[in-house]
Design a protein around this nucleic acid. Sequence first.
DNA 1: GAAGATTGATCGATCAATCTTG
DNA 2: CAAGATTGATCGATCAATCTTC
Lengths: 159, 159
Amino acid sequence: MTGKASAKDKLRVWLRLLRTSRAIEAHIRERLRVTFATTLPRFDVLAALERSETGLTMTELSRELLVSNGNVTGLIERLVGDRLVARAEDSADRRATRVQLTAKGRRDFAVMAAAHEAWVGELLQDFDAADAAILNDLLARADPARDLHVPSLRKKVPA
Amino acid sequence: MTGKASAKDKLRVWLRLLRTSRAIEAHIRERLRVTFATTLPRFDVLAALERSETGLTMTELSRELLVSNGNVTGLIERLVGDRLVARAEDSADRRATRVQLTAKGRRDFAVMAAAHEAWVGELLQDFDAADAAILNDLLARADPARDLHVPSLRKKVPA
DNA sequence: GAAGATTGATCGATCAATCTTG
DNA sequence: CAAGATTGATCGATCAATCTTC
């Protein structure tokens, strides 16, 4: 066997992938909302900033999160309002704005990240190490955009 | 081997799943935008209506698409404005509104669905039938919400 | 002129509140 | 009082336009 997959097969896989991803995402959004009164995009911003040592510029953040520049502006605005994130000038480039976690931001994120990891563990309860590895590999092969900044992709797709 | 997967392993799988799903989704949104000047949520509504014989009520649609009731109201409003969808009264229940595809809606959707299937085929080029089957099964096992209306889930999650 | 960032218009999505009908 | 649907407020997200700085 292992013949070529039909277009219908691939369509089914994609719909399954989309559905599963949305369902897990919905659970996590819901948990973030009821437990920490926050949202997934905000969590994602904090996670990205936590991974960086010296903070990120707005454009670096938008590439990291695969979202548009204007989107990041609004998100950071609200996070600054909540004192989780602080802006600073970039010493080298006066056009750029660097953002960093505040002490409160780091503290809050640590708590949320631990809970987040536990939730994912629950949701993927049935998976052993082998399953996880296989799924990971298959998904990596399905990813069409390993290092592509998606929202700016439209400049490169003529048809 | 095939020991228990650690929490970190599962977290990695989830991040991979989310990333792949978002990347494919972004490509399809982009194609829908440049090729047909439409969006994925609109496409999803048309697809759901096309699958149904006699049309759907607003609430049925919201369950089918896993989105909120108010969201559907706005989507249908715009689709009716574009003459792709028509409202009708429900003969049995005067509270309900049934929506159906118009002839134009059916025609337009047929064209878009064919293109959509081809795009997915391209994106999942590397997958043979066996890969597709394995991925499908693993994803099905990861889906926490087989028949759960997610936006209303919050009523049932106390903590 | 190009890159970093913001702004404004618009669409999607949620929630809470409300109105009508069952 | 329940359920179907809409409305209004708010957040997220895109795009196109603009401003400043490189």
